[in-house]
Amino acid sequence: MAKFRKRSRITADMVGESSMSDVAFLLLIFFIVSTSFPEIGLPMILPSKAGDVQQVKRDNVMQIVTARSGAYFIDIDTEPTLLSELRGIVRQRLMDNENLILSLETHPDAPYGSMINALDEVTLAYDELSAANITREHRISLKMLETE
């Protein structure tokens, strides 16, 4: 036993404790340099300009119109829909129709943030469906309303 103890003390002496802080700093600097914070965003694929215009059935299109005021209207409703209600409605419509295309139509003077909030809710509706094992291809189209 005595012999073992002696030996272990020798090896402990051989690991230089004075350079531990150097190693720590080296690691610190390495991680400071290599760390990059991920950016968060809503990804989107734009349709190509050359792509042929597809005709779709009107029944398969759900229009989510963002008005100038930032209020949301579904299809040709005259009453605005609250943002908090949007997700449930979109989810229901997606469940009923697997070919549904969501057309986000925004007034040119509407704030960009309102459109993003609607896009967020639509994406969440897709997420909730896929969490419930209902697969729906993401079919979102962004459009600007034409005004005179």
Binding site: I40, G41, M44, Y112
Partner: peptide, 30 residues
């Protein structure tokens, strides 16, 4: 893009990206 930027300018930028065939985009958010 600022949340209160008018959508018109965002749309114009997207149209230009389509012309340049840069089709992968993302809307950065918090």
């Amino acid at each position: 893009s600022d949340e209160s930027a008018p959508y018109r300018i965002v749309n114009e930028a997207m149209e230009r990206l389509k012309l340049a065939n840069a089709l992968r985009i993302a809307f950065t958010t918090v």
